[in-house]
Design a protein around this nucleic acid. Structure first.
Length: 886
RNA sequence: GGGCGAUUAGCUCAGUUGGUAGAGCACUGUGUUCACAUCGCAGGGGUCACUGGUUCGAGUCCAGUAUCGCCCACCA
């Protein structure tokens, strides 16, 4: 016997263990079937399951379980990402607290060993948590971006792109993170509005005075960079400065002379219209300097501290000062020198490292770049052609927008944890890019004519470089594995919009370049999960809802169902805990329905054929099941998970529980043995359909219930998706037939009954849920009232027993409910009459509209006329009912 | 500055070929003899942000306004 409420915790762990142990998640179980492939967006090894993961993986799991049941040979390829900066950060912090040491003291080799050790110990946190969610990944194929195989792929890609000229080295400004002391890509920079100020400095003219002007005033938000100014620029059309163009000004503190130049960049309307040009520490200025041959003067070291070099003329006293210390000093000295011309508080956009949370410094360094513009071309074309489709569609705009304006991708990082760049240097700086050191040495020998020693590039690659290869590297590329042949291209990529640029775009580029085919035909972009108030969840805000806590409290099924139900194609999901609670209740409801079935001897009959059902109500439920299955399948195919969830919820609760189970009660307790037998089989069959259809969404409770009712060998996860040949229309007809008979029976019952004046008892059709009323209204809106007013003479308060009406083959129960308050009932009727009057007026207005008659489609016209008739009939019956009430 | 999106019941959200406004939670009343109080039954609550247009008919299509949010962008 099933327990009164279901307890997810124990059940989930047990079932998941069984599934995995029996190999149900493994690809290749149906070698002849069409494959279905999803690669997981690899979570960071450092990560733990957050709500975004929960949503992302719930959707993938719904898809994979659905397709598995539909007979496809499913591969859900799991794995994790080595997450360069994030992981290095975690381990460095660990070293600090545990050993009070740092990576530089340890040395590269020892440090990397320590990171690997950490990975072995803690790297599987996230996959354990994904299991708790129920994710049916093929764990036997789990990959890690720094695996041997994937690393091989990275080397091959790098070398090939280099040799094709698509990877190159360049010296230009990069976004420099002074905490991690590495370059980062544009995408890893987050612009934030911060409180700052804009100062105005005067630079005196070297010649003294020209036409009454003795100085030029510039504005800056970063005073410390003035030490690196190479020029002052004005717009060529700016009349104010015409006379000064080409003249020199004296740069205070640095005591250098710099020219006044013209460039299109300065906006004459902004500030004084004169801009200081600091080519080595500002992206705009860099471009201006490059155009005008202005020297780039580097002021800072890798930690963004001031350095003094022969080239930069920075006074000795600045050496070692950080940017902010230097700023204070410059301001003080400028003021003392009498060159400060103003200060204004201002909100300024500042670049921050998205991981380090410090202000990024533009730095002049040599880095490796990918020619992204070239690789983007086929990636753009593929989406234009429809080889890859974004769902929802409008995301392709975002994709195009970025791809068409794509900048060179800086792929080198000055970190240790990651794929070390396969580039070796000769003593003269000659570069040899090869997959192995031996190949590089050989290449060097060819180049120099003799064996020479080479030094390897110290840098590692951007984490996203290896992620970009994920759809084929995980399948074994560059080896020609059977998996690669079978599973590339993959079917669907499920991901959030926040990594379209980081990841999706780059997979498209790499996939097309190396596989000559798009990596996936569909990209399903889901929303971000936010908190109840729409705030992004973040640790600092303290509004993080931990999916694992929700699983503990409500069960994985409830969480999954909630996420699916809220995964409409919007921008974000505001997660309310109450919603999860509601779906937990849904699971309980299902559980109890099964419990009821069990208590009433409902048991699966393998030979039961719903098409051949004799009892009408059984034919009807079969039709409803078929209809539900159809809409669930379609909704999943169209990635409308909320619709699928809604259809299931409705079927389980409002159709199966509220209607069907109530209606079969009298049959199950009745005398007709044949009807009883059939109904038991039917109830079991319908419950099975629920379990099957609901399984992709709520795998645990459905499997558990399936197990309780089936032979042990028979696993739901391995069962087929139901199909309902010959069930559709027939069952729908049966429903209508049944409803009509029900109505007429109720009517005759009423007619036969004398309702004595002042009668106090009313009778209600069983399960008068809202849904029941609505359904009844489809044919006979009045049915509930009729039943209610078909008062039966009973003496006193009636127990919840039921009066039974025999409806041909079906027996319908009319339980008697409570004492009726006639005054209240009359008021209710009056109110309803008002509403009917209003509705009738509206309908009439419409029908009287000449345009409506002329232009509305026939269906709509008949529908409207029918409604009018119905309203009129209802009105008449209402009045009659009022009369009866006295 | 450019782009995208949102605005529907107290709250969180559904609502695509334009044709009678929905769910969950919360709320009110009521019922615990047997599937389920994580429940049943009854009920209250919406000028679908605003303005105009197209249409016989607009939450749904178009234009504009307001508010909010996100993404991208070099204003010192």
């Amino acid at each position: 016997m099933l327990d009164k409420t279901f307890q997810p915790a124990e059940m989930e762990a047990r079932l998941y263990g069984e599934w995995e142990a029996r190999g149900f998640f493994k690809a290749g179980r149906k070698p002849k079937a069409k494959p279905f492939t999803i690669v997981i967006p690899p979570p960071n090894v450092t990560g733990s399951l957050h709500m975004g993961h929960a949503l992302n993986n719930t959707i993938q799991d719904i898809l994979t379980r659905f397709e598995r049941m539909r007979g496809r040979d499913v591969l859900w390829q799991p794995g994790t990402d080595h997450a360069g900066i994030a992981t290095q950060m975690v381990v460095e912090r660990l070293l600090q607290t545990e050993n009070n040491t740092d990576r530089r003291t340890m040395g590269r080799e020892a440090f990397l060993k320590r990171v690997w050790q950490w990975k072995e110990e803690s790297g599987d946190t996230i996959s354990r948590q994904l299991r708790r969610l129920g994710a049916s990944c093929d764990w036997s194929r789990e990959r890690f971006t720094m695996d041997e195989g994937l690393s091989k792929a990275v080397l091959k890609v790098f070398v090939q792109l280099y040799k094709e000229g698509l990877i190159y080295k360049d010296k230009r400004l990069v976004n420099w993170d002074p905490v991690f002391q590495t370059a980062i890509s544009d995408l890893e920079v987050e612009t934030r509005e911060t409180k700052g100020a804009m100062w105005s400095f005067a630079y005196p003219l070297v010649e003294g005075e020209i036409g009454g002007i003795s100085e030029i005033v510039i504005s800056t938000t970063r005073p410390e960079t003035m030490l690196g100014d190479g020029a002052v620029a004005v717009h060529p059309s700016d009349e104010r400065y015409k006379k000064l163009i080409g003249k020199l000004v004296r740069l205070p503190i640095a005591e250098r002379h710099i020219p006044i130049i013209t460039d299109e960049y300065p906006d004459p309307e902004f500030g004084t219209g004169a801009v200081k040009i600091t080519g080595a520490h500002d992206f705009n200025d860099f471009e201006v300097a490059r155009r005008n041959n202005i020297p780039l003067i580097k002021l800072m070291d890798t930690q963004a501290r001031m350095i003094v070099t022969p080239e930069n003329n920075v006074p000795e006293r600045y050496a070692g000062k950080d940017r902010y210390g230097a700023r204070e000093m410059v301001l003080k000295e400028i003021e003392e020198l009498g060159f400060l011309r103003g200060r204004e508080d201002k909100i300024i956009p500042q670049p921050f490292g998205d991981r380090s949370n410090v202000v990024i410094e533009p730095m002049l360094t040599e880095q490796w770049y990918v020619n992204a513009a070239e690789l983007a071309k086929p990636a753009i074309a593929a989406v234009e052609k429809g080889d890859t489709v974004f769902v929802p569609r409008n995301w392709d705009k975002t994709y195009f927008e970025w791809m068409k304006n794509i900048q060179p991708w800086c792929i080198s990082r000055q970190l240790w944890w990651g794929h070390q760049i396969p580039a070796w240097y000769g003593s003269d700086g000659e570069i040899f890019v090869e997959e192995t050191e031996n190949l590089a040495l050989a290449a060097a020998q060819r180049h120099y004519g003799s064996r020479v020693a080479l030094t390897r590039d110290e840098d590692v690659l951007d984490t996203w470089f290896s992620s970009a290869l994920w759809p084929f590297s995980t399948l074994g590329w560059p080896d020609k594995t059977p998996e690669l042949k079978r599973h590339y291209k993959t079917d669907v990529l499920v991901t959030g919009f926040d990594i379209i640029f980081f990841w999706v775009a780059r997979m498209m580029m790499m996939g097309l370049h190396f596989m000559k085919e798009v990596p996936f035909h569909t990209v399903y972009i889901h929303a971000l999960v936010r908190d109840e108030r729409g705030q992004k969840m973040s640790k600092s805000k303290g509004n993080v809802i931990d999916p694992l806590e929700l699983i503990d409290e409500f069960g994985a099924d409830a969480l999954r169902f909630t996420l699916a139900a809220m995964a409409a194609q919007g921008r974000d999901i505001k997660l309310a805990k109450s919603r999860v609670e509601g779906y937990r209740n849904f699971a309980t409801k299902l559980w109890n329905a099964a419990r009821f079935a069990e208590m009433n001897g409902v048991a699966r009959d393998e030979n039961y054929d719903p098409v051949a059902a004799r009892v009408t109500v059984n034919r009807w439920i079969a039709g409803e099941a078929a209809r539900t299955a159809k809409s669930v399948s379609r909704a999943i195919e169209e990635h409308k998970y909320n619709e699928a969830a809604a259809a299931l919820y409705h079927f389980v609760w409002n159709i199966y529980c509220d209607w069907y189970l109530e209606l079969i009660k009298p049959i199950l307790t009745g005398e007709d043995a044949a009807a009883k037998t059939e109904t038991r089989a039917s109830a079991a069959w319908a419950l099975d359909q629920i379990l099957l259809l609901l399984h992709p969404f709520m795998p645990f409770i459905t499997e558990e219930l399936w197990q309780k009712t089936a032979a042990r060998e028979h696993w739901l996860i391995d069962a087929g998706w139901p199909s309902y040949k010959g069930l559709g229309d027939k069952a729908a007809d049966a429903e209508i037939e049944w409803m009509i008979r029900l109505i007429s029976e109720v009517r005759s019952v009423r007619a036969e009954m004398n309702v004595p004046a002042g009668a106090k008892i009313s009778c209600v059709i069983i399960s008068a849920a809202k849904e029941t009323r609505r359904r009844a209204a489809q044919w006979e809106d009045e049915i509930m009232r009729l039943a209610r007013l078909s008062a039966i003479t009973f003496e006193d308060k009636v127990p919840k027993a039921s009066a039974q009406i025999v409806l041909g083959e079906a027996t319908v129960a009319l339980p008697l409910e409570g004492v009726i308050d006639f005054a209240a009932e009359k008021a209710r009727l009056n109110k309803e009459l008002d509403k009917i009057a209003k509705d009738t007026a509206a309908i009439e207005a419409r029908l009287n509209n000449p345009g409506f008659a002329a232009k509305a489609p026939e269906e709509v016209l008949t529908e409207t006329r029918d409604r009018k008739t119905e309203l009129e009939g209802r009105r008449a019956r209402m009045k009659e009912a009022m009369k009866r009430l006295g």
